[in-house]
Amino acid sequence: MSASVGGSDRGALLSIAEVTKEFATGTLAVDRIDLAIHERDFVSLVGPSGCGKSTLLRMIAGLVPPTTGRITWSGAKPRLGFVFQDATLMPWASVRKNVELGLELQGAERSLRAERADVALALVGLGDVGKAFPRELSGGMRMRVSIARALAAEPAVLLMDEPFAALDEFTRERLNDELLALWAEQRLTIVFVTHSVYESVYLSNRISVMSGRPGRITDEIQIDAPFPRDASFRSAATYHAYCERVSRALRRPSPSSGGR
């Protein structure tokens, strides 16, 4: 494995170079991460829990600064959307108010907010629940609202932190398909954190496999199956081969712990 899988990639939208994060407690969360994200990528970060993949995502979002290393965008920082594992909606506000949040905080006018919120809710198939309150919705619907909230602010890059992990298998698969459709339609770039091998293979064009703590990228796997993908891909031989390959990469012991 080359240590700089993509860090020096020139055409990249986002370059992560030698990024390390050490928490105040002394825990080394991620260690010398190199990663390049290109425009229109759907990249999954896969790894065991506690491998620092969420921390990496938060550093990309600019919510947490890296201890060392550089995170650079080509050109101006694009508009970002963030989706958490929990829907993280404001329980006191209607669905519509929740979806308008990003626009509201950025000072958009009321009419524009309403219009974009309607569009975003329609995109996730929830055209008619704007007046409802979050607690009146099912878990899957809440997650859709959460995605609509991210989309309403018209992000170029969508960062997703295990967004479907808390959902049942059936809902998760349906939302996977919806997300792929949105990714294509809205011309998004998506960085997707998950611990599900199957999900990552189904969704991504590229997978970065991370090792357990301290998190390092141990493998990068290109998923060359064509888009659009649908349920038939899940039963294809190539799909299973990729899943097997990612699983193997996950099982491989961390290359480095002592090697420094």
């Binding site: 938060r58 979002a61 600019g62 919510l63 970002l80 963030f82 958490f84 929990d86 993280t88 404001m90 949040l101 990003g102 905080l105 950025q106 602010a153």
Partner: peptide, 18 residues
Amino acid sequence: ADRNLHALFRLYGASRWQ
């Protein structure tokens, strides 16, 4: 207040007042 909502407010550049 929810930590993740705080993060989201930061991401969207919310002021202290907001």
